[in-house]
Each structure stands twice: as structure tokens, then as C-alpha cells.
Simulated scan of single mutants.
Amino acid sequence: MNFKGLIILFIVTIFGVSLKAQEPVAPTFPKMGKLDTIRVASTNDNGVMIPWMQLQEVNIFAARIWKSPAEQVAFNRLRYNVLKVMPYALFAKRRYEQLEQDISRTPEKKDQKKLVKQCDNEIKDMFNREIKDLTITQGQILTKLIDREVGRTTYDIVKQTKGGFAAFSYQIVARVVGHNLKSTYDPNQDRDIESIIRTSGFYQ
């Protein structure tokens, strides 16, 4: 056999081995036990099916050491205010998401305006019954939490649903009483608020 024939034989041999290596391997499933009744996801790891299931996130917080009694009092006051307004922020999130879904399914502009007005009336009703009694500090926290939950500032929500002039007017009134509808939420800057929310049980 000449040199050229050896090269061809070598290539054919390598190619044959490659084809053999690429042949699919039948997956091997673990043996079922008598009490194995829960269906879970699995991953094929070189022919061996490995079962797995996603666990809920677990947050671990160390016991906080206070620098002074005044600092602890301030944190407890912040916790009270956050827990006071958090339900309103969650309501705004659910209501705004519902409004977006309703508008996306409503092609007529006239009907969309009716949906916006209905949502506006519900929020005004809640304001007249409950939110109007919030302190300035609680109102400031609420605007931050709305940005946290909805992903948009209160100013942006008003601007989208009622127009730029309404948002500008609301902002002027808010600034007079010490609020800012453009307040945003920063988990790092507002880490005490974030810690309170994560340990409060709102998302369990």
C-alpha cells in the first residue's frame, strides 16, 4: 500500500470513530422507589437522567447591632411606615398591571379612556378613604415603593394614563406638601427599606 492509500485509510478510520462517538446514547433513568410519586424535571448528563427541582429563594439576615438606641428607634419607625404603605404599593401594582392588560385587549381609544377613568376613580376612592391620612414621610416612602413594584415612577404613570399636563399639575401639588412623584427606588440606597420588605412576609 502506497503512502496515499495509508492517508486515505487513516482519514476513513478517524471519520468512522467520530461517527461512532456521535451516536446518541439511550438515557438511563434512576430506579423508581416505592414512595417516588412526585414528578420533577431532569437533566441528561451523558446519558444519565439526573432529577432536580427548583427551590424557593431563602434570604438569611444576620442580627443587626445598633450603634445607639436612637438608631434602633429610627429603624422601628421606618419599619412601621413601610408596613403601613406597602399594601397600597402592591394594590397600585396589581391595578396598573390589570389596566395595561385591559388596554392591550381594547382597540378602541374611546373604550381605553373609559378603562383609564375607571382605574383613576378606584385610586381616587382609595385616596379619599385611606391614603389622605398618610404622613409626609409615609407618602414619600409610598412613591418609592410604587417605583419598586411597578417599575415606573408615580409621575410616569400619571403622565402615561392622564397626559403630561396632568402629571405636571400633580407634581406641583405634591411638591407643595413635601412629596416628589418622580422619586425612584434604589435597593442599595434604600437598603433598610429593602431589608424590611424582604423580612415582612409580603411575598410568601
Rank of each mutant, 00 (worst) to 15 (best):
N81Y: 00
N81R: 01
N81D: 03
N81S: 07
V82Q: 00
V82A: 06
V82S: 01
V82I: 08
V82F: 07
V82C: 01
L83D: 05
L83I: 03
L83Q: 06
L83K: 00
L83A: 06
K84N: 10
K84I: 07
K84D: 02
K84P: 06
V85G: 00
V85W: 01
M86D: 03
M86C: 03
P87M: 04
P87V: 06
Y88D: 00
Y88P: 03
Y88S: 05
A89T: 02
A89W: 04
A89Y: 05
A89N: 06
A89C: 04
A89R: 05
L90F: 02
F91N: 03
F91Q: 01
F91W: 10
A92C: 09
A92M: 06
K93H: 04
K93C: 00
K93P: 03
K93I: 00
K93D: 04
R94N: 15
R94T: 09
R94S: 12
R94F: 07
R95S: 11
R95F: 10
R95V: 13
Y96I: 09
Y96G: 00
E97G: 12
E97S: 15
E97V: 14
E97H: 10
E97N: 11
E97Y: 07
Q98S: 14
Q98C: 12
Q98L: 13
Q98V: 09
L99M: 09
L99K: 02
L99T: 06
L99R: 06
L99V: 11
L99F: 11
L99H: 03
E100N: 11
E100Q: 11
E100V: 10
E100T: 05
E100I: 05
E100C: 08
E100R: 03
E100W: 03
Q101M: 13
Q101W: 08
Q101F: 04
D102M: 04
D102P: 02
D102Y: 07
I103M: 09
I103Y: 05
I103S: 02
I103K: 03
R105W: 10
R105T: 12
R105C: 01
R105A: 12
R105S: 12
T106N: 08
T106F: 10
T106K: 12
P107D: 08
P107E: 02
P107H: 13
P107C: 05
E108W: 13
E108V: 14
K109F: 07
K109M: 14
K109D: 14
K109V: 13
K110C: 08
D111T: 11
D111C: 08
D111M: 13
D111S: 14
Q112V: 09
Q112Y: 05
Q112T: 10
K113C: 01
K113T: 13
K113I: 09
K113A: 08
K114I: 09
K114P: 02
K114G: 05
K114M: 04
K114Q: 12
L115G: 00
L115V: 07
V116Y: 02
V116I: 09
V116R: 11
V116D: 01
V116S: 01
V116H: 08
K117F: 13
K117G: 04
K117Q: 11
K117M: 10
Q118E: 15
Q118D: 13
Q118G: 14
